[in-house]
């Protein structure tokens, strides 16, 4: 999930490629054909997709951390099991996505190294802290809600392995948003303190969630190629508006107030939200969000402390292969 904010397509390099091949490729895209790993593709298409899919994968993996922060503190055993299953799903999604990116020729190790070196981005949303249990409800409801808006069109993305990964992700993720909303319903039907906790979480997450869809269309320079290649089918603002329109009635049902006093409903029924603070977005993407350093530190620690385990597994595999060869020779 969560790639929209990071979409930046490579500029077209058609001039450097075989013009006829490029034209043929575009014709296939226009005819809604899926591109498969061994097919010829423009280098810029490959590069754009590798970056987008791997950033999407990094987001899933880093996204395990804010929610994982509450697995050991979930308030009931039922919630604990559901949250653990959900965070585990995110790991699975990261894994599917790394595999999709690998079909383009990069190894998972390279992709992960780029992330750990701070060279690859992940969604800005995961650089915010989860302070209370209501944050877990809010993330499921809003962050997963936003992710679903973004991911459903990606199921029809022109690159086959990415589209297939997205289909699997969307299927599995259908419980995530419901899980979150159910937490919110329970809080909002609970004590004053619980309701206040829910409102506080909505207040803190609302604007960062709107930022997940990426810069406004007017300021987004790189969408053209992605749109032409049918990696991206809706603009940032279109998806953001769709999300807001879907979410407002859900907040009303909960009796919660969206922290945007200037929000109004227009004649067509669309909820018009106020200006988003893009300075904050840029700062968070640049590494200055409240949790960027903690997230990176946690991933580096897991990777670093896992090194000897991966080495052991590799060493054993090599020994086993040698033994099998020796046995076969006898």
């Amino acid at each position: 999930m969560y790639t929209q904010a990071l979409n930046t397509a490579e500029t077209d390099d058609r001039g450097l490629e075989d013009v006829a091949k490029a034209a043929q490729f575009q014709a296939r895209i226009d005819a809604e054909e899926r591109i498969e790993p061994n097919d010829w593709m423009p280098a810029a298409y490959r590069k754009t997709l590798t970056r987008q899919i791997s950033q999407h994968a990094h987001s899933e993996i880093v996204g395990m951390l804010p929610e994982g922060n509450w697995i050991t503190r979930a308030p009931t055993l039922r919630r604990k099991a559901a949250l653990l299953a959900k965070v585990q799903d995110e790991c699975g999604h990261g894994l599917y996505l790394y595999a999709a990116a690998e079909t383009l020729g990069a190894s998972r190790e390279e992709l992960v190294d780029a992330m750990l070196a701070g060279k690859a981005k992940y969604s800005s949303i995961f650089n915010y802290p989860t302070l209370t249990w209501a944050d877990i409800g809010t993330i499921g409801w809003l962050v997963d809600g936003a992710a679903i808006m973004n991911q459903i069109p990606l199921c029809r993305c022109s690159y086959g392995p990415y589209a297939r990964a997205m289909i699997r992700v969307c299927k599995e993720e259908s419980f995530h948003q419901r899980q979150g909303y159910e937490i919110m319903v329970t809080l909002c039907r609970g004590s004053d303190e619980q309701k206040a906790m829910a409102q506080d979480a909505l207040n803190r997450w609302w604007w960062p969630v709107l930022m997940m869809f990426g810069p406004p269309d007017a300021a987004s320079q790189h969408s053209d190629a992605s749109t032409k290649w049918k990696i991206k089918r809706f603009s940032n603002d279109e998806l953001r508006q769709k999300f807001v329109d879907a979410t407002v009635p859900q907040a009303q049902y909960l009796g919660l107030t969206i922290p945007d006093p200037g929000m109004t409903q227009d004649a067509d029924g669309h909820w018009r939200y106020s200006e988003i603070d893009w300075t904050e977005f840029k700062q968070v993407l640049a590494g200055n969000g409240p949790c960027n350093r903690d997230r990176m530190a946690a991933r580096r620690k897991a990777h670093g402390e896992g090194a000897w385990v991966r080495e052991a597994a590799a060493a054993y595999a090599a020994k086993r292969a040698r033994r099998q060869t020796a046995q076969a020779a006898e």
Binding site: I61, M64, L65, G68, I71, T72, K80, L84, A85, V87, Q88, C91, G92, G94, L95, Y98, A298, K301, A302, E305, G306, A307, V309, R310
Partner: peptide, 20 residues
Amino acid sequence: SEWCGHAPMLEEDMALSNIA
């Protein structure tokens, strides 16, 4: 469950969570 998100490899995050 404390391992979730911190295992030596993603495949093992999956396995340990299943066992948990």
